[in-house]
Structure formats: structure tokens, C-alpha cells
Design a binder for these strands. Structure first.
Lengths: 239, 239
DNA sequence: CTAGACCGATGATCTCGATCAAGAAATTCG
DNA sequence: CGAATTTCTTGATCGAGATCATCGGTCTAG
């Protein structure tokens, strides 16, 4: 029985966890499908939770967050979208999240009828959804099992181009002196906290701590320089 | 600006959060596509995290969990699958999760090539993925923002037929005396803990507490009777 | 320039859930 | 059946992160 053989590696066979999905290829776009292009300013709402879900959206440029609210005001940011990501689909009649821009953004809109009809569109859709699903899985690990430091480190690594969340990290890469990187967050401490399932104070403290330890440098509160990417990656909990 | 108008409702416009997605319609199946049917015993592994992702699976009967591991053994159960749910797709070459049965289960397998080719299959796929994505969003709220009691209450409500997670709850329903329900968990306390981002002890304590308060009755450790569904629903944090 | 609003940093304290430690109950197996 | 093993429960203690409180910095409006 495969299960037993596996158990030899520890409680859940943690040794197998070393194999991890690699960063994902470029995402398809819906350009070719005569999608309507809409422009939004920073901090605009594209739709609210509860609005009728009748269109498919794809982010063409900028950054958008999807969040959900509890009636007492607690908020959870469930996805941070990048160009190529799709949103606005819902299993029910209504949107399950609010979509709000973090920066200026342009969005492609396609009618759901049109989606139904096109094989190509469906194929691309599947690819996008699968990709976003994998990210949601990784985020569930972060929210369910990681410490505050690990969450912030994972978040920063997620913003490093081609290193989504430290996933696929190969350890210190001596072949390149790429161990520095400038990040533009486009998010307030509150938005970061709501994404990481923390409070604003904890995020602030952890960031200060990373600065004190020399792992990062803070140029402006939303502009952070990573001094040692690999050092940061070691703090994400995935090593 | 829509944002400002919205803000009148509180920090994030919590008032809008009342509108929630309804329970989802029956899921499509891939029966018609000549899928190969495989039978698994309880606690069998369908595939491991890191295995090559080359097939699409759909759960035909039984229950399966998808989980991810951190190298130090921390585990997060990211999805609990029900008949109709699909799994095994990955953005990369490798599976991002381990899939393990909770009960005996039968699984339909379709080759990825075949998926690419069929419009119908794609359409159904989109529907399944969208549904599961919505559940992942809800679960992110649970992991990021809910208390231990709210998590356990939400989990139990999630198992009540037609009341997925208390979503779409309409308050005490006096038209039916349906305020009781027998649940078969098919999960150990450890598995529940790993799904809810808690420890086994906390899950055990909360369950004992719900029993003490008369909200539930424990017939066997994995067989729980809900005495007052609405009372439980009130504890999920969504009201 | 000042006043006001907002955002972020940081100290003090508290609390919920984790951790540590036994037992009790259920399940498996000889 | 009883012994061994696993799972669950419960108590005691601890600590990471939440909460509360304050202050400094920055941006905007007048």
C-alpha cells in the first residue's frame, strides 16, 4: 500500500514535500476575442460582493485585489491579481468577492455567453483558473500554518519577478549576483495585513524587524529593497 | 467615485457583505467522456505532491482531501472534495498537492489531451473550477480571520447538505423542523485540525464545548448530531 | 504656514490558541 | 479475550500575535 511506504518518511511523509511546482508560464490573454477594454483609477471598485455575476474579466494591466468581508468588518483579501489573471466568475448568480484596484488598471471584459461559445477562450480560461487555484492552495498554507515572519517573507518573495512565493527556489544562486531587488508594493500595511491574515501592527513590526536584521531596506513605505533575496527566501517556511 | 460612496457603510462597507452567494447547483460529471473509472480504499493516496500532472480526475463517489506539506511536517489540508469535484490539474508540470481518500472512493480519469479537445468537457471544467475557487475564497476567510469556534462551526455547517458553510443561510427556518441533522465526518481530529489551521487539542476542546452547550451531540468521534443547526450557524461568524 | 486626516511605527498589556503532559476511550491484533 | 497501538480528551502553562494607546511623518486643503 502506497500509504504505508510513504509513512516511512515521517508523519505525513514530509520528505516528499521537497518537490514543488515551478513558476508558471506566461498567461494567455483574451485580446483576440473582441473584449471590451475598461480603464480604472487606483482604489476603484470593479464590482462588489453580491453584485450580479454576468461578465468575465481579465486584468490587462495594473493590480487588483479580491476581498471578502464578514459582517462585523473583518476583511480577508483572498487574491492579488496580476495582468493575465481572470476574475468575476462565480458559481452562483452573485459575485463572491469585491474587486478593487490597487493601482491604475485596465480590464478586459467578455460576456459569459461568448465564453460558453469559444473553445479557445475556454481553454485559456482553464489554464488561468488552474494557475490561480494553485496560488490559492499555497495561500491556504500561509494562512493556516505559517508564522507572522514566514507570512511577510512569503509575501515579499511573491512579489519578486519569477520567484512567486519562493516556489521553485533553488537556494543561493552564485551564478548571478541577483541577490537584490526593488519592490513596489502598491499596498498599504492594512491591505497587506488583510491579505496575510494579520493585524497592521504585526505587519509593521515584522517589516521593521526585517529592516533591523538587514534583510530589506525601506525606501518609502510601499517601496522596499530586498538586500538578500535568498536570506528572505530562507524565512518563508518552505525550506 | 464609487469607493467613497461605499465607505459611508463603514471601514470596508461591511453592510454590503450581507449579500452572499447561494449554494451551488449540482455539478456536471464526465461520465459521457469515456473516462476510466478507478476504485480506491479509505486512506489511499491518489497522487503525491510533486508527481507528474498528466491526467484530470473527477471524484465520482466518496471523499478526498488535498493537502500540502511544509518541510518541517506542518500540514495544511487545502480542499475537501465531494462527488463531482475535479482535481489533478496543475499550472506546472507537477502536482501541487497530495490527494488522499478519506473514505472508499471512485475516481474518473481523463487524459489531458482529451480535455483540450472537447468543448463540453472544458465547459464543465470551468464550472467545477469556479465552484471550487469560490469555496477556496471562503476558506481563506476562515483561515485568515475566524476564531477557533467560528472555524469549527463553519466546518460543521459545511457538512450539512444544502447549507455549504452556512453560506446562503436564511436564519431560523420555522417552516420546517429541520433543526437537527446527523453528520458523518469521515475525518480524524488531526485531519480536521489540518483543514481548519488549528491543533488537534483545540479542535477537541471546541467540539467538547459545543457538546457541553447542547449545540451538538457526539455519537461516535466521527459521527456528530447537530441539535440546533441555526444555533450553530450563528456561531460561524457570517451573521 | 497651519489644521486636519491618514498612515505607519512602537511600546505596554492581554488573550486565544499552541504546547506540554497525562489519562481515557476506541480500535487492532494476537 | 487482553495487550498493544492509535486516537481523543482534558488540564496546566506558555507565548505569538492581537489589542490598546500614543506619537511621528506625510499629504492635502485652506
Amino acid at each position: 500500500m502506497a500509504y504505508l511506504e510513504h509513512e516511512a518518511n515521517g508523519q505525513y511523509g514530509a520528505a516528499r514535500a521537497a518537490a514543488r511546482p515551478m513558476a508558471v508560464a506566461t498567461q494567455p490573454t483574451f485580446e483576440a476575442f473582441g473584449a471590451k477594454l475598461t480603464k480604472f483609477g487606483a482604489h476603484d471598485v470593479v464590482y462588489y460582493e453580491g453584485d450580479e455575476a454576468k461578465r468575465l474579466y481579465q486584468l490587462a494591466s495594473g493590480t487588483i485585489m479580491l476581498f471578502k468581508l464578514l459582517p462585523d468588518g473583518r476583511r480577508q483579501v483572498v487574491e492579488i491579481l496580476r495582468p493575465g489573471d481572470i476574475f468575476g466568475l462565480s458559481a452562483g448568480e452573485e459575485q463572491d468577492c469585491t474587486a478593487e484596484t490597487l493601482t491604475e488598471a485596465t480590464v478586459r471584459e467578455v460576456d459569459l455567453k461568448q465564453v460558453e461559445a469559444s473553445v479557445d477562450l475556454q481553454r485559456q480560461l482553464t489554464k488561468c483558473l488552474t494557475n490561480q487555484m494553485n496560488i490559492l492552495h499555497e495561500h491556504a498554507v500561509l494562512l493556516g500554518r505559517k508564522s507572522a515572519v514566514e507570512r511577510v517573507a512569503s509575501f515579499l518573495m511573491y512579489l519578486v519577478p519569477n520567484r512567486g512565493g519562493g516556489v521553485g527556489c533553488v537556494g543561493p544562486d552564485p551564478s548571478k549576483s541577483d541577490d537584490g531587488c526593488d519592490l513596489q508594493l502598491h499596498m498599504t500595511r492594512q491591505e497587506i495585513a488583510d491579505y496575510l491574515g494579520l493585524t497592521i501592527e504585526t505587519v509593521s513590526r515584522v517589516v521593521s524587524d526585517l529592516k533591523r536584521r538587514g534583510v530589506i531596506r525601506i525606501d518609502r513605505s510601499d517601496k522596499i529593497h530586498l538586500n538578500r533575496i535568498c536570506g528572505l527566501c530562507q524565512m518563508t517556511g518552505i525550506h
